Amino acid sequence: MKYLLVLVCVVLCVCFNEGKDFTFGTRANNLLISTEKVKYRSLPLIRRDKDYIYKDPKERIIKGIIARDLSRTDTEVTITEGGIGASNVTLHLQSGRGEELNYLILIFSNSRDINYNF
C-alpha cells in the first residue's frame, strides 16, 4: 500500500512539473563561473526567440551548462555555438506561444583551470 502511494505521488509530481530545464555536461567537482538571469516578457500569440551569448574573459573551458526554467513553461533551449569543451557558448531560447522566457543560466568550468597567482 505504501509503495502505491509513493508511486502515485511520483507520477503526480512528474505530470504537473512541465518546465523544461536544460542540462548539458556536468557540474560535479566543477567551479561555477557564471550565473545570469534571462527574462523576456510574453507577447500574446507570439513565440519569443532570443539568443544568450557567454564568452569567458579568462578563456576557461566550459564543462557544464544548466538553464533552469523559472516560469515552468513550455520553452526550448538549444546550443547553437560553442558549449562543452569551448570557452564560449550561445544558447537559443524559444518560448511557447504567448509565454514568457524566464531562465537562470549557470555555467561551470573545471576547477583545475584556475590560476592561483597571488
Rank of each mutant, 00 (worst) to 15 (best):
T23W: 08
T23K: 14
T23Q: 10
F24W: 10
F24E: 14
F24C: 10
G25F: 04
G25V: 07
T26E: 04
T26D: 07
T26V: 08
T26W: 05
T26P: 03
T26F: 05
R27K: 14
R27F: 11
R27Y: 13
A28G: 04
A28S: 12
N29R: 15
L32D: 07
L32S: 08
I33V: 15
I33F: 03
I33L: 08
S34P: 00
T35H: 11
T35R: 14
T35S: 13
E36K: 12
E36Y: 10
K37W: 04
K37S: 08
K37P: 01
V38P: 00
K39V: 09
K39M: 06
Y40V: 08
R41F: 06
S42Y: 01
S42G: 03
S42K: 08
S42H: 03
L43Q: 10
L43R: 10
L43I: 12
P44G: 00
P44L: 03
P44A: 05
L45P: 00
I46S: 05
I46D: 04
R47N: 08
R47P: 01
R48P: 00
R48W: 03
D49Q: 11
D49V: 13
D49K: 10
D49R: 11
D49Y: 14
K50Q: 14
K50A: 13
K50C: 04
Y52G: 01
Y52F: 15
I53D: 06
Y54E: 05
K55P: 01
D56F: 04
D56L: 02
D56R: 02
D56S: 09
D56G: 02
K58P: 00
K58V: 07
K58C: 06
K58E: 15
E59K: 15
E59G: 05
E59W: 09
